[in-house]
Amino acid sequence: MNRKMSKWEVSLRVVGATSMVFLLSGSAFSLAYWLTKWFYTRHEVRFPEYIVQLVNWGLGILFIIVLFAIVNLVIRPKQREVWVEMIDALKRMAKGDFNVALDRDKKFHGQFGDVIQSINDMAHDLKQVELLRQEFISNVSHEIQSPLTSIRGFASTLQREDLSPEEQRHYLSIIEQETTRLSKISDNLLKLTTLESEQQQLDTKRYRLDAQLENIVLASEPQWLDKALELELELEEVEISASEEMLSQVWVNLFHNAIKFTPAKGSIKIVLERLGNEVKVKITDTGIGISSEDQLRIFERFYKGDKQRTRTADGSGLGLSIVHKIVELHHGNIRVDSRLNEGSSFEVTLPLT
């Protein structure tokens, strides 16, 4: 952020500049006075007082011009040095080198302080963006490489002639699973890119949010019945104006995560309530939980958390990033409250309109 000068700093600069002008002016007129006095005394010249003062003023103004010219000649190279330093920093940034840190407090830099601070801030922000870009590329490469390695390995194994039909079917099913995983990664990346684009428009309409949550729970019945999970629903009848399709992705992702990370015979509770001009949806489970360190980064792209959660279920680490972005587009917020081995609670708050 650019640091604005305080009133005290502005006052000090004004006082400094004014003092410099008075010092140079006083020096110039003093020099004119003593020079003319020496001249008149040396040559015993007598002029009217009016002429003497007029000559003193003329010489004083001349000396002021000369002194200011000398000061300008001394300072100008330093100013040029600062300009060259700033232009060089901008050229380095244009070539992708963001390790730029100009010294704002350096002598002769004071008058360029705000510009120098802006360049430093811009270099810092661009460096952070570049680090995120490199991390993103690394994560995408890793996520894609893993299923590709499996597909290549099992495809090579299938070329053996001594495989039984059962083994062939087993390897083919693994290849199918890995291609599905690749497809989901690609689809999620496309969704995230679309959501983050500035042209993204919300296709909003009024609909019953409680009915949407009920339908998602019913559609997921085979998954939670398979683990013998206990479901508890407390859904207040609420109408909301939002993108039904986008919010469906939010509830599906959060509910499926709750099923995925909750051990067999655990429980999941979904609460929907209206709070003034807002609506709150809370999905709580008795699953494996999330560490406090992971809760700080859980909505980052490709972040999967601790090894226990990674072993429990596969995933690309993009689901919660998509959830976070959709909630953000609806001017809402999402937060997580969790403890290891005790469960997690995701709370989404949205405006009714």
Rank of each mutant, 00 (worst) to 15 (best):
V336I: 11
E196L: 14
R297V: 00
Y33S: 06
D294S: 09
S316V: 02
N257G: 08
V55Y: 10
H43V: 01
L192G: 01
F261G: 01
G287Y: 07
L24C: 07
F63R: 09
K280S: 10
D203F: 04
Q200A: 14
F255S: 08
I326W: 02
F299L: 03
S141T: 13
I185W: 01
S241H: 15
A313C: 06
M93F: 04
Q53W: 14
F39H: 15
D114V: 06
L35I: 06
I151F: 02
V115P: 01
K260Q: 12
E176M: 09
Q128A: 10
K107I: 06
K106H: 07
T157Q: 14
S25Y: 12
L195E: 10
G113R: 12
G266K: 09
Q134F: 02
V21F: 13
S156T: 13
T157C: 07
K95M: 04
R42W: 12
W57Y: 15
I283G: 01
D103L: 09
V66H: 10
G266Y: 09
S220V: 02
Y171T: 05
L296T: 12
T284I: 07
N341M: 07
E278I: 00
L73S: 08
I334C: 00
T310L: 11
E347I: 12
A313F: 08
E232L: 00
A101W: 05
R339Q: 12
F261I: 03
L231C: 00
L218T: 14
R169L: 11
L340P: 00
I51Q: 10
D88P: 00
L190Q: 15
D97M: 03
E178V: 01
L102D: 08
Q168V: 08
W224R: 04
T157Y: 11
S345N: 10
G317N: 08
